[in-house]
């Protein structure tokens, strides 16, 4: 622990010295939406990383620029699709999201920034996907959307965008505490034949190159993300699965308790970073 703290402190020094290091004011979207991409760690992150950095700060200028104008951002077309779905009636009731929730820009503002969060009964941790599906099955009497379906990705992108520029602020106390602690445990658990934990790369080695890849802190403030590698949007849990496969581990399922717990913990590591949905990465 002490060693890794020392190491991250050293990384921090390198960061200050690096001329290419992006600064907080660098991500300005459409010339008007300011995104904080480097923030001071929240209390629970003190001593773990010196600065909390968005994945955007680790990407090449060519990739970064795609997120600086919504006309260039390939994720925006899916936001538009999500906004159409919002108005579209579905299920036995034939109701749309808008029938209950009105203007997305008002009713969904800040929602992404607080996800995942305990359900109203306080019995389960719900991701944004689960909140959407709960509305669909319980209120619209419609079928669930699959986690990685085009509809779900479009809707989570559209809802997420209503929090763009708002700081990630997830509840990690009270009934969510147990989930957060499980997520923390998973973050430091070595898995797979390569026997690595999330922390080995994203805490101890962010800012280092692993072959052609610039290791980031693994923040999730821009999801669903448009990945150039995927040629489309993908969910947080899809990204988790990819990481696990890379280290030859058997991934958990999308929507599993493990990934939900990890999502809460990783979101909390990025507390204070602005939501960037839909972000663009390589």
């Amino acid at each position: 622990m002490r060693l890794s703290t020392l190491k991250t402190a050293a990384c921090g020094l390198a960061l200050v010295a690096a001329p290419l290091a992006a600064s907080a004011e660098d991500l300005l979207i459409n010339g008007q939406v300011e995104i904080n991409t480097e923030v001071q760690p929240a209390d629970h992150m003190k001593g773990i990383v010196p600065v909390v950095r968005s994945g955007w700060t680790f990407r090449s200028p060519e990739t970064q620029v795609l997120q600086m104008d919504d006309f260039d951002n390939p994720g925006m077309i899916f936001v538009d699709q999500g906004m159409s779905l919002w108005q579209t009636g579905d299920g036995e009731t034939g109701e749309s999201c808008a029938d209950c929730h009105g203007d997305m820009a008002e009713s969904m503002e800040g929602v992404r920034a607080s996800m995942p969060k305990m359900n109203p009964e306080g019995t389960d941790l719900w991701t944004l996907e689960e909140n959407i599906n709960n509305c669909r099955t319980e209120r619209m009497e419609a079928d669930e959307w699959a986690w990685e379906s085009s509809e779900m990705l479009a809707m989570t992108a559209a809802i997420g965008k209503q929090s763009r520029g708002m700081p990630v602020d997830v509840e990690i106390d009270g009934p969510a505490r147990e989930w957060w602690e499980r997520g923390e445990e998973l973050y430091y658990q070595r898995v797979g034949q390569l026997d690595m934990a999330c922390a080995n790369c994203h805490e101890d080695n962010y800012d280092n190159m692993i072959r052609a890849d610039h290791l980031s802190q693994g923040q999730i403030n821009g999801f669903p993300v448009y990945r150039l590698k995927w040629g489309g949007l993908g969910s947080i849990h899809r990204r988790f699965k990819g990481c696990m496969k890379n280290i030859r581990a058997e991934p958990y399922n999308r929507g599993s308790d493990e990934f939900k717990a990890l999502e809460l913990y990783v979101a909390s590591r990025g507390a204070g970073l602005d939501v960037e949905t839909p972000s663009v990465r390589n």
Binding site: G192, D195, N205
Partner: peptide
């Protein structure tokens, strides 16, 4: 101790190892 470097000739029961690598060395 605690290095990130994988062990290239160990066939332990790694946690959540993929089936195809179970009992195999890298």
């Amino acid at each position: 101790q605690g290095t990130i470097m994988p062990a290239f000739y160990v066939a332990d029961d790694f946690t959540r190892n993929q089936d195809k690598f179970e009992g195999e060395t890298i």
